[in-house]
């Protein structure tokens, strides 16, 4: 009887476990570190850099590593990549791990890391130019399992490389503050901009790099009146690759720069932005007329109402 009870209980528990196991969802988790490497390197020189990729899943994963070149990015610094793109300078790169090669799968155990040693060797005769690439780690299935039904999902995670081949440190770049975009309510008449003193002035900044090398922006944006600085905000240093635009962020990491004028502010104010890169400076100034529009309109409305009330009172009497 006791044996019978034991067998029954064991069978029941096993079935219960199998049920839970079959409903557990397979997942993927990948981590890469660092996610950005910026290199300036002379022709004829070589360097190696280690990247760590981690499999955060509960199962072993086959991973393939590839280097995907890119030339463009959007205004938020996201590379525009074509996973099939190629470039002649890809041969400057190699993986030094003895058991890991580009485009060949390797295994990472569950909840484990692998260190990838990426080497970069620039020939003496290499062009002075920038090369940009994303080091992409992808989960790999040789073929879809024949017994699988529906959709099999795979993941890739990337790290960006911004490389400047140069014979001098911080080669010259051409950076312009393209646009100051006012996003708070305002009035524009021709080139003149008008804003109300009760409205917090909000604006966004955009820069363009028309030079041949990536640069990092550092600087400030300020509001001044009659050369008296009323407010200063720091810019978050950001990379702008060659021939691209970038929206600047303030030091909090947000897109908007703000200024709260005094309630009775009246007169021309200047939005001044100064950017320093490693090799150049860039400045821009936009004037805006701030005045108490809502207060004036309110006063006019009150006067009109008073006049109407007085007129009505006179007529009645």
């Amino acid at each position: 009887m006791k044996l019978y009870t034991f067998i029954t209980t064991a069978t029941f528990l096993s079935l219960l476990l199998l049920t839970f196991a079959s409903t557990a969802h397979a997942k993927i988790g990948l981590t890469v570190d660092p996610s950005l490497v910026k290199i300036q390197i002379k022709p004829g020189k070589a360097i190696t850099k280690a990247f760590t990729v981690e499999n955060n899943s509960d199962t072993q994963k086959q991973i393939v590593v590839r280097l995907i070149p890119f030339e463009k990015a959007d205004s938020n610094g996201n590379p525009i990549i074509d996973i099939k793109s190629n470039s002649s300078w890809l041969k400057y790169f190699a993986i030094s791990n003895t058991n890991i090669k580009f485009e060949e799968p390797f295994t990472i155990e569950p909840n484990s890391k692998e260190q990838i040693i990426l080497s970069l060797s620039i020939p003496e005769t290499a062009n002075i130019e920038d090369i940009y690439a994303t080091l992409l780690f992808s989960t790999y299935e040789n073929t879809l399992p024949s017994q699988s039904k529906g959709t099999i999902v795979s993941a890739s995670i990337g790290a960006n490389l911004l490389v400047t081949i140069t014979s001098e440190l911080n080669p010259k770049t051409i950076l312009k503050i393209d646009t100051i975009k006012i996003t708070s309510p305002h009035l524009k008449i021709g080139r003149k901009i008008f804003s109300d003193s009760l409205t917090t002035l909000t604006y966004q900044l955009f820069v363009s790099n028309t030079g041949n090398h990536v640069t990092e922006t550092k600087g400030t944006t300020s509001i001044s009146k009659n050369d008296i600085v009323l407010s200063v905000q720091k810019l978050l240093p950001q990379h702008v690759i060659s021939k691209s635009n970038r929206q600047l962020l303030n030091s909090d990491g947000t897109q908007d720069f703000t200024f709260k004028p005094n309630t009775l502010s009246f007169g021309w104010h200047s939005i001044k932005t100064n950017i320093k890169t490693e090799s150049t400076n860039s400045n821009n100034s936009t004037d805006i007329f701030i005045f108490p529009l809502k207060i004036l309109l309110g006063l006019l409305l009150v006067l009109f109402l008073l006049k109407t009330i007085l007129k009505f009172s006179k007529e009645k009497s």
């Binding site: 990549i81 529906g150 959709t151 099999i152």
Partner: peptide
């Protein structure tokens, strides 16, 4: 029926 979907996560720089 089956197919495969790949998601690519790329950080900004």
């Amino acid at each position: 029926y089956q197919n495969g979907i790949q998601y690519l996560a790329i950080p900004s720089f």
